[in-house]
């Protein structure tokens, strides 16, 4: 492996000039974004420094319950992101439970599979591997799950008449909602398909770029990226199926009704 180039504080300070440039553009063209830009940049730096400090501690501690706790916290945050995207909300915190359950299920299965078969660190639950892996799978699973949930909740509201027309003629809830469930799953899976077919041609994936910059041989970085892509698509698939079925179960009942009374529009945030 080539020695990686260590960045100094001075290097970062020079790069931060680019943020000042953005601010200048905002002022010059009266975009009104400079305040938000400054806050976002500040948040980004603070959040990343904080996570860096936390990860250092967690890696050094090598204490599995702590690793699990960190991953659960990440899952909870991802579940929340899935929950707040859709305009429609399942009542009684339904979006949160559905989102967190789907995200935890998909991330758990794909991460454990990768750690025990492909990556095989010793031990397999080593925080140095488990946390970053869970993180990247989570980010992707979150995206798939939130798109699918948003699509499903939006479409059942829009297509209430179509769903009920089928129920009125004796269709089961599965038959009446099947088309919308499939459309929601497709919606959630499209970004994964897109990013797989574009990677290496349109984009150099971030992880791979990072590894090459950090000195890893490109071929090795590519192998990692391929593994990762498989993990991400598997995770997205599981998340999309879980979120759609969990949400659909709440949108209907044992008497095959469409229960839109269990949906509420999100209030202003």
């Amino acid at each position: 492996m080539m020695p990686s180039i260590v960045l100094t504080g001075q290097d970062l300070a020079i790069a931060s000039v680019l943020i000042l440039l953005d601010g200048a553009i905002s002022v010059a063209y009266r975009l009104g974004l400079h305040r938000q830009l400054a806050i976002a940049a500040g948040r980004m730096v603070l959040q990343l420094l904080l996570i860096g400090a936390i990860l250092t501690r967690v890696f050094d501690a090598a204490f599995p319950p702590l690793t699990l706790l960190v991953i659960l916290a990440m899952v909870a945050l991802a579940g929340r992101e899935v929950a707040v995207r859709p305009e429609q909300r399942l009542i009684r915190m339904g979006n949160y439970t559905v989102g967190a359950a789907a995200v935890a299920f998909a991330t758990g299965i794909t991460s454990i599979l990768a750690l025990t078969t492909a990556l095989r660190p010793q031990p397999w639950y080593d925080a140095r591997y488990a946390i970053p892996l869970a993180g990247i799978v989570l980010g992707n699973v979150l995206n798939a799950a939130s798109l699918a949930l948003d699509a499903l909740l939006g479409s059942v509201v829009r297509e209430k008449a179509a769903i009920e027309a089928q129920l009125c003629l004796g269709a089961t809830n599965r038959q009446a909602m099947g088309r919308l469930l499939r459309a929601a799953m497709r919606r959630g899976l499209l970004p994964v398909v897109n990013s797989m077919s574009a990677s290496g041609v349109v984009t150099l994936p971030g992880i791979m770029t990072g590894q090459i910059l950090a000195g890893l041989d490109p071929m090795e970085a590519v192998k990692y990226q391929i593994l990762l892509m498989f993990l991400l698509s598997g995770g997205a698939g599981l998340a999309v199926v879980a979120v759609v079925f969990l949400a659909a179960r709440r949108l209907t009942d044992a008497r095959h009704r469409l229960r839109l009374d269990r949906l509420a529009r999100a209030g202003p945030r």
């Binding site: 297509e159 008449a161 027309a165 089928q166 009125c168 004796g170 009446a176 095959h256």
Partner: peptide, 20 residues
Amino acid sequence: FAAPAWRRQVIYVPAESGWW
């Protein structure tokens, strides 16, 4: 009756029709 079987016997036709 299972709910779908009931609705095949007791058919509701809403004022606004739905098309799937």
